[in-house]
Write a protein that binds this DNA or RNA. Sequence first.
RNA 1: GGCCCGUUCGUCUAGCGGUUUAGGACAUCGCCCUCUCAAGGCGGAGAUCGCCGGUUCGAAUCCGGCACGGGCUACCA
Length: 494
Amino acid sequence: MSENQNVRVRFAPSPTGKLHVGGARTAIYNWAFARATGGTFILRIDDTDPTRSTDENTQIILRAMRWLGLDWDEGPEVGGDYGPYWQTECLPIYREAAERLVAEGKAYYCFCTPEKLEADRKAAQERKDTFQGYQRTCRNIDPAEAQARVDAGEPYTIRIKVPDGRGDVIVHDAVHGDVTFNAKELDDFIIFRSDGTPTYNFATVVDDARMGITHIIRGDDHLSNTPRQIMVYEALGAPTPVFAHISMILGTDGKKLSKRHGATSVEEYRDAGYLSDAFVNYLSLLGWAPDGESTVISRERLASEFSLDHVSKNPAIMDPKKLDFINGEYLHAMDDQTFADEVLIPQLHAAGFEPAGECLHDAAWYDLLAAALKPRTTLGPQVVDQAAFLYEEDAELEYDEKSVKKWLAKTGAREALDAATEALAAVEDWTPEAIEAALDPLPEKLGMGKGKVFQPIRVAVVGSAASPGIGETLALAGKDHVLARIERAKELAL
RNA sequence: GGCCCGUUCGUCUAGCGGUUUAGGACAUCGCCCUCUCAAGGCGGAGAUCGCCGGUUCGAAUCCGGCACGGGCUACCA
């Protein structure tokens, strides 16, 4: 990747809402591309729309970026040599750039009212013109006259002047290849509104040029706007960057992602218990594949192997099942200690099983619980249901009806529980190994299958027929509780 | 209306004219392991590569048309 020594990329969200998964993936690709090429990753806040942009949203986005682990080299909080990194602070810069284009004859004042534009558009439609854009009414007004009208206080916008005979405008796109547009189809579009604010297509280009952005990785809804933006680069006399338009992320029904698909924002995934690494892993593979084989890709690998030519062109449907699988892979790869500290214990606190800031058991107990639950968990909060039986009062433990019917209310169950009581009461060192050593001889002694013996014990202690191994389960529950629960369950056993 | 983009198993994808009886992963199904539930191991099913033509000895791969989906065409971003 040494050919891209001076790569500068940017992620430029508008703080008009939370960071959604599509935006997150765009951010990830920009970040990964910068890291893989040894370039610079810039974060810029595109808040030109003051009515919809809020500071709160900005904070949410910054928080999401940090959670995702996408560190930026320039931007809010870290600064940089190409500031400001907030568009609202750049208004004079845009103004100056636009005025300069007018002075150079590359842009012009337009005095058409919205009503006139609307009427023109309608007329073009009725005439069935292939071109339905701006009719260039004000393009040839004498500059001196235009200036006089501006000075007189007449409302105006500023339009870019698409050069006559510009011919084909070619967008060099790293994922789509060269995409050709005919300049004749391009509007003399507005770069400055009558209220004195710049339009998006102008402001971004001014900033991207000013910041020396070399590659623009963004959603492919911008592809059609790109030739317009190229007109601005050319008017500004700035080099045009390489573009990379990435596809959309869709919901499971193949439609645009929306609330009815469940979680759409990064923070919702964080709150649901997904691991940052797993989430980034999943999202990066949604539209990019290093080799077609790998499913679990470390952040390090992403940051060293990411390349634009392996980005796919077609929209991707979000698959929650695969996200869960990958999250599980990361969970299972943790050591027990880490799983206990970062997943298990926080979840127990969140569930209210243990009082905030306090641990009811010793470290060894949590490690044992972690070891027992880790392979059974693909998403953090799942440990809550699995551990719930450990936090019930013995007398209030609820029995799952089906499990009782299948294992307790059966002949032989009573016999098994009696034998268990005797064997377990004699266990001195209450560890999984010792418990299993005590229980192991029972099936043969009683002449029953292992299930016939162990399942009634399990249901008695857990309340249901599913739990980790019997040794671990009983060890975690504690000797006194186990014996009490078995005693209580005998009433249900035949 | 015009312009632009996209289309490989249910899903994410590999594939860049012959090595492809189209590979992997998730999901699904079955088997093994087993005291249950998971995890893990093994295996199965699943794609006439959107459709129709063309180029070629040979096409998922190149070209054209069509269909379907999406985007832009705003004093939204």
